[in-house]
Design a protein around this nucleic acid. Structure first.
Length: 706
DNA sequence: TATTATCAGAGGTAT
DNA sequence: ACCTCTGATAATACG
């Protein structure tokens, strides 16, 4: 199938007939097994591996495809092709199909509207891409995409993000349950090995009955709370762009991209589903190709997908009977006949980071033909050829794997390097700076790097708080006095090196007077930077920060380091954009501004009420001295959030300010947080309201100006 | 340390 | 009861 150079001709002459194809394709099985087989097979026939054993394969990778799809962008009736071709064919097939044809007509508009809406955006972006040629502009692409979103699209994007955060929250809660119940935490394991098993507690740990799938638990929770987005949607999903990365199948279910975390082919089966009336059901709306195609994904606009069924899923995973034209197979056939666009998701193995697998939305495809053929085990399997709709963003390896461009392997292959490590060895990982914008390029200057808080003269530090009496580390939230301050549970889970389960008004960590050691899970934010961050120059926003690593939601990124000052003293300084007000108290009271990023947190009522209307008493000035956090830009749709943390003392007015990941952040994506200043809150000396343009792309700019 | 085997897991449909 | 096959861990092979 690899040598399919006549793909285009086939388009004009599609046949829906089922033909016997003697090519030795075989059963559907797990990616691992398939991979192994593919490798073995390749060893046997190293040159011509035309009879692939993969579930899906790339049919055409020829360069002219690229040109074609570029041209398609400017072609107004580009998305007529699906239905037009179909109609021609239907009329050939005769009277019996007239009904389907009619349905097709009726549905055409709705489907095309969805496709066109997307393509309109693609058109705009593509135009930009043409203008902005050159490698160094790649990083700007993502920004353009965000900037050119309409208000509706921004809203849709925010809705999707919100749903995902809900999912992360439930997920991490389930992880904590799992860690507690199963006793699989590092702490517990150590305890059980080294010291005597804690009486009572360690004994009721049920290792076998633990919730092993927090992702599924989270999904169930979302179903219960009715927070799953867009069930059974046809075509593109608002707020989810081509190239969107997901980190598990469950995540995709949470936003309604898929309806089940396990199915490769997802169908709409019920009449009452949104937009499904009039269709001959079931119709397939999304397929997932789980696989190993990182290298051959470029321009893989044609695909052959193996149907479902006839597999022994437990045991040897062999094909043991013929596939039948039912369920997903029938759905794909129906989708072909009724011009239903199919979302295509590809799974990529990703061993370089904590995420084992990444799923990428690769756009809408049309089913162009299907057939059945004998598999290796001697049973019939169905094959579906899908062709990518034109006018969508090009598929490239970069795009599939890393939205913002290629991830550098080391500092040495960084382009535009202006500084190898702005922290000058102070951080665990070097933080390089690059500048591909200015000519001649320059490095960030005018500040001294420092990774611990400096205290200005008039500021008095509060007395250190008493710590907990734990030893080793604080796995037992019931006995740790620090954990108790956070509620009944620890704020963090152990997974992925420690993740904050959800934003809280304040996080009480263990501190210098605690009995626990540095390995304690309740000291997550005290361990310095652990992701490979890069400071880079942007055309419009000055310096910015991104990560080369995946950052899981709830993971600590960095603390906001600067000089701890009294706010009154700072207001005298005219131009300083590096002031961070420590306004936890104001935030907790629900005042304007930063409360937005904290969502629906609960506010403790114990704080003194007379502070309600006060301004923040202290702030952090990262102007003259600070850490990498001073380069992180504002966004009204940020992927980090600000978390007040108390560790050495319990005075909230001087809380530490730590930035945590709000989303699962893919490499090379700019890190941003919400500066949180109320719109029109800054008034100039002449009494006019000062404004500074926000380039985050969101509708409302609330960036602070001095 | 890297690869392979194992198995539970949930929601829909079929029996 | 069956179908869907993922995600995490246990077990094994490997160097």
């Amino acid at each position: 199938m690899e040598d399919n150079e006549n793909t285009n001709q086939n388009d004009n002459n599609m046949m829906t007939d089922i033909c016997e194809n003697p090519s030795p394709n075989e059963k559907r099985s797990s990616p691992r097994i398939e991979k192994l087989k593919a490798q073995k097979h390749q060893q046997q026939t190293p040159v011509n591996n035309s009879n692939k054993k993969k579930k899906t394969m790339i049919l055409s990778k020829s360069p002219h495809k690229v040109e074609e799809s570029r041209n398609g962008v400017e072609n107004n009736d580009v998305n007529m092709t699906v239905c037009e071709e179909q109609q021609v064919e239907e009329s050939r097939n005769g009277v019996e199909n007239k009904e389907i044809l009619k349905v097709c007509e009726e549905k055409k508009a709705a489907v095309e509207e969805s496709v066109k809406r997307m393509e309109k955006r693609i058109f705009d972006v593509s135009k930009r891409q043409k203008v902005e040629e050159g490698e160094e502009k790649l990083q700007m692409k993502a920004e353009f995409v965000e900037n050119e979103m309409t208000e509706d699209e921004k809203r849709a994007y925010a809705v999707v993000t919100e749903a995902l955060r809900t999912f992360y929250k439930y997920y991490l809660h389930a992880v904590q349950e799992e860690e507690t119940r199963c006793g699989k935490t590092d702490a517990l394991q150590k305890n059980m090995k080294s010291s005597k098993p804690k009486k009572g507690e360690a004994l009721d740990v049920d290792v076998k009955k633990g919730a092993r799938r927090p992702d599924l638990k989270a999904l169930t929770k979302m179903r219960e709370t009715n927070t799953i987005l867009y069930p059974n949607k046809i075509g593109s999903i608002p707020g989810i762009e081509v190239g969107k990365q997901f980190f598990s199948r469950a995540e995709m279910v949470a936003v309604g991209f898929n309806s089940h975390w396990l199915n490769g082919i997802d169908c709409i089966t019920h009449e009452d589903s949104e937009g499904s009336s009039g269709y001959n059901l079931p119709i397939a709306v999304v397929i997932v190709m789980s696989g190993q195609y990182e290298d051959d994904l470029d321009n893989s606009e044609d695909v052959v997908y193996t149907g479902q069924g006839g597999n022994k899923l437990c045991g040897n995973r062999r094909q043991f009977r013929d596939q039948v034209l039912e369920k997903g197979n029938l759905g794909l056939k129906n989708s072909m006949e009724q011009c239903v666009p199919v979302r295509v998701v590809r799974g990529h193995e990703c061993k370089s980071s904590y995420v084992g697998k990444v799923y990428t939305y690769d756009g809408l495809y049309k089913v162009v033909k299907y057939w059945s053929e004998k598999g290796v085990s001697g049973f019939n399997v169905f094959k579906f050829q899908l062709k990518r709709l034109e006018g969508q963003p090009l598929l490239t390896t970069d795009q599939v794997q890393f939205a913002g461009g290629q991830v550098p392997k080391s500092v040495s292959d960084l382009r535009g390097l202006v500084c190898e490590d702005i922290s000058d060895g102070q951080e665990n990982v070097p933080i390089p700076a690059t500048n591909l914008v200015d000519d001649p390029p320059f490095a960030p200057t005018g500040f001294a790097y420092c990774n611990s808080i400096q205290v200005s003269e008039p500021v008095k530090l509060p007395v250190k708080s008493l710590g907990c009496n734990c030893s080793g580390n604080c796995a037992y939230s019931k006995t740790c006095s620090c954990a108790t301050l956070n509620g009944s549970n620890l704020p963090y889970v152990h997974r992925d090196g420690g993740r904050l389960i959800e934003p809280k008004a304040v996080v009480y960590e263990c501190g210098p007077n605690c009995g626990c050691g540095p390995g304690c899970v309740n000291r997550i934010s005290q361990r310095g930077i652990k992701y490979r961050l890069e400071v880079y120059r942007t055309p419009k926003k000055g310096w910015a920060v991104r990560s080369w690593d995946y950052i899981p939601s709830g993971a600590p990124v960095c603390e906001y380091i600067g000089k701890l000052m009294k706010t009154d003293d700072v207001d005298a300084i005219p131009e300083n954009n590096y002031i961070f007000d420590i306004d936890c108290l104001q935030t907790m009271k629900g005042l304007d501004g930063r409360e937005r990023r904290l969502g629906g947190m609960c506010i403790p009522s114990s704080e003194n009420d007379d502070d309600k209307d006060s301004v923040p008493e202290f702030c952090l000035d990262a102007g003259p001295t600070g850490n990498v956090a001073r380069f992180i830009n504002h966004s009204c749709q940020p992927n980090l959030f600000v978390q007040c943390v108390l560790s050495t003392h319990h005075d909230i007015k001087q809380a530490r300010v730590v930035l945590f990941a709000a989303d699962n952040i893919p490499p090379m994506k700019e890190l941003t947080y919400d500066y949180g200043y109320a719109l029109n809150s800054v008034v100039g000396p002449d009494g006019t309201i000062k404004q500074l343009l926000c380039y985050c792309g969101a509708a409302v700019c609330r960036k602070r100006l001095f």
